[in-house]
Design a protein around this nucleic acid. Structure first.
Lengths: 213, 213
DNA sequence: TTGACAACATACTGGGTAGTATGTTCTTTG
DNA sequence: CAAAGAACATACTACCCAGTATGTTGTCAA
């Protein structure tokens, strides 16, 4: 697998990644200084530069960390037998759930993809980002193959897979922008939100009947 | 109307707005320097600071300019008589078309909303951004009211309007991230893309039958 | 013709920031 | 127990950037 889980970060490195993810989410990549991340850790730059050679490498680390966790969620279901539409229901559900539960990491991954699409980066940054985005594209391929197969099996109905998978992902990813967990909110309420989002995407893809989740 | 078209920018100011929009889209707000915008104009900072008091005011100008154009597209259809679902079809279509045709401005508006959601801004910036986001929310209200009415008329079917309108907007806005107009591409091809996106959203909202656009 | 102002350009400043060079402390290993 | 290196902190530098202060040129009205 492309760059997946090559290195498991040790405890201190993991703390840095989490703090960095928080900062990147709150202010965005370029508005976040390395000192900001250090401050959040109650530490100084020295600690961060001991583990990461540069700010962009730190960002790449968070991206990788985030993508790993997203992959983790879907991994158990991606190769299950049965009709493709049933597989889609499961991976769409756990994907969206993960978007909400790991909102911070998911948004950093989002910004990474955005940065790549912009293209306005240094050649060295670009090389790293290229690899990461390939990793992320291999993830979206899982969904693309699944919905195409489901269409062949007569359960979905759409024209261009490229366009459709983009619309689908945008809908499934939407909560990373607006979802705010209420204090004392139980999982059941969160699942209700997930269900509505997945239902929207399911219908959008041309799925028939009700979504039984 | 909330802050709409109060001031029509003169020619020179409009040039600055366009150049700024290009820069903001390519690198994002904080990664863009005022000198960057000036360079793109073949001018210097002096010109920009003569028309705008600050970088954030420049951003606000682009945001306003972009929102005005988005409003423009929908305005002729928002109060047309007939069933709400038909009104939705029209405004969803022109909205998505505008997203693609004014992709640059649309992305700046997007980043403005994102910045507001993050909340990590100076109090003074926040005040300006608050007003702009209210302006943009009054726009999304048009869609929310329309789909709720269409649901009451039995043409749409969904649970929570707040969640659903978010999913819908994400789907309709998606092309601002991936659409790249091919050289020599005709409008007909672009409309085909729009049609697929709107179809996805239409079905997602619980619309029955085919979309006749 | 002149003076006043608009529309810029030029030159400068202070603060922030990525990255580096160099301590310091603690742990581990032979 | 000594020494070597890991895991940081401190101190510093060079640079970029928002904003300002001031100069310059063209226009237009009296």
């Amino acid at each position: 697998m492309l760059g997946a889980r090559d290195v498991v970060p040790d405890s201190s490195t993991a703390d840095i990644l989490v703090a960095a993810a928080d900062c990147f989410m709150e202010r965005g990549y370029s508005a976040t200084s390395v000192d900001d991340v250090a401050r959040r850790l109650g530490a100084t730059k020295g600690r961060i530069y001991h583990h990461f050679p540069s700010k962009s490498a730190l960002f790449a680390g968070v991206f990788q960390f985030g993508m790993d966790r997203i992959f983790d969620a879907v991994e158990p279901y991606r190769n299950q037998p049965g009709p493709a539409v049933e597989r889609w229901k499961r991976i769409a559900f756990v994907h969206t759930k993960r978007m909400m539960k790991s909102k911070t990491l998911a948004r950093v991954v989002w910004e990474g993809v955005e940065m790549h699409l912009r293209g306005a980066t240094t050649p060295e940054q670009r090389l790293v980002l290229d690899g990461l985005v390939k990793y992320r594209n291999s993830y979206s391929d899982i969904f693309r193959e699944t919905i195409v197969q489901a269409r062949e099996e007569g359960d979905f109905n759409f024209e261009d897979p490229a366009i459709t998978v983009q619309s689908m992902f945008m809908a499934l990813n939407s909560p990373i922008f607006w979802y705010v967990p209420r204090p004392g909110e139980d999982d059941e309420h969160m699942y209700a939100v997930v269900r509505q989002i997945v239902t929207f995407a399911y219908r959008g893809l041309g799925g028939k009947g009700e979504l039984d989740l």
